[in-house]
Amino acid sequence: MKHFLFGFLLSFFIGKSFAQNVSSFWIGFSPNFQSTKETRYTSNFRFGLAYVGTLGYSNYNEKRNIFVETEFASATLGAKNISSTRNLQAGLQFSYIFQRADRINFGPDLQVGSLLQFRNGVRSSNNSISYLIWNSLGITANKPFIIGSRPCNLIGSLPLISYVIRPSYSFPFTDRFLLQENYNLGLEDLRSNIVKGGKLRTLNSFVHLKLGIESYYFVKKNFGASIRYQFSYLSYLKQKSLFQFTHQLIFSFMLNNSK
């Protein structure tokens, strides 16, 4: 979420009018410390270090900021336990933020994300995998500010309504598979039935809160870097719950193009 502040500050740094459209691309890498409690297979939080790759694009002017970012994380939790877990997490975020001078910028936010968990060293077939897949519509907001001479940005996003796909209470696939017409041990049409097996959830049962602070460094007119600390909280509270906290330090390299 480099959007507004980036454009705003860029106008100072490179002496361009803010009325321009400015496009930015960035690629980032980060360590990510996560604690996850998937009550489908563990009674306590598991901790581990993930490696995250981030790819982003934004296009902004004085009225709005279009922002797209995707990230992929991989972690092994409980590596020394009898059954460890491989977590693969992917996300795509699309935001349209209305820019409001001297006020908090906000706008709608679309997210598609997944947390896939693969257990190692287990002999029980019905919960050797677990997943949380979500498609969400929510809000995002940011607030630029200056620390010393350093441009910074406070950012946050929260889905309000989500289409969430989870395994059934005791079955590796969704509840949909336990209906007579869909029950098929051959697992034909697996993908289609998984996608159709989701449920609409609101804030009382699905939360994916992201909060962060970011600072920018410009080496040249069209080249810079940023560092972002991001905290995220993910939870699913229906039947077998899932909780995840992540702390992430993202280092990004940025390319800008003004028109």
Binding site: S43, N44, S83, R123, S125, N126, S170
Partner: peptide
């Protein structure tokens, strides 16, 4: 039936029949 398993607080694993 089939079984599912749970990791206990001390990392032991317990499994039970689920269907």
């Amino acid at each position: 039936g089939d079984a599912i398993s749970l990791e206990l607080p001390n990392n032991w694993v317990v499994a039970v029949t689920i269907n």
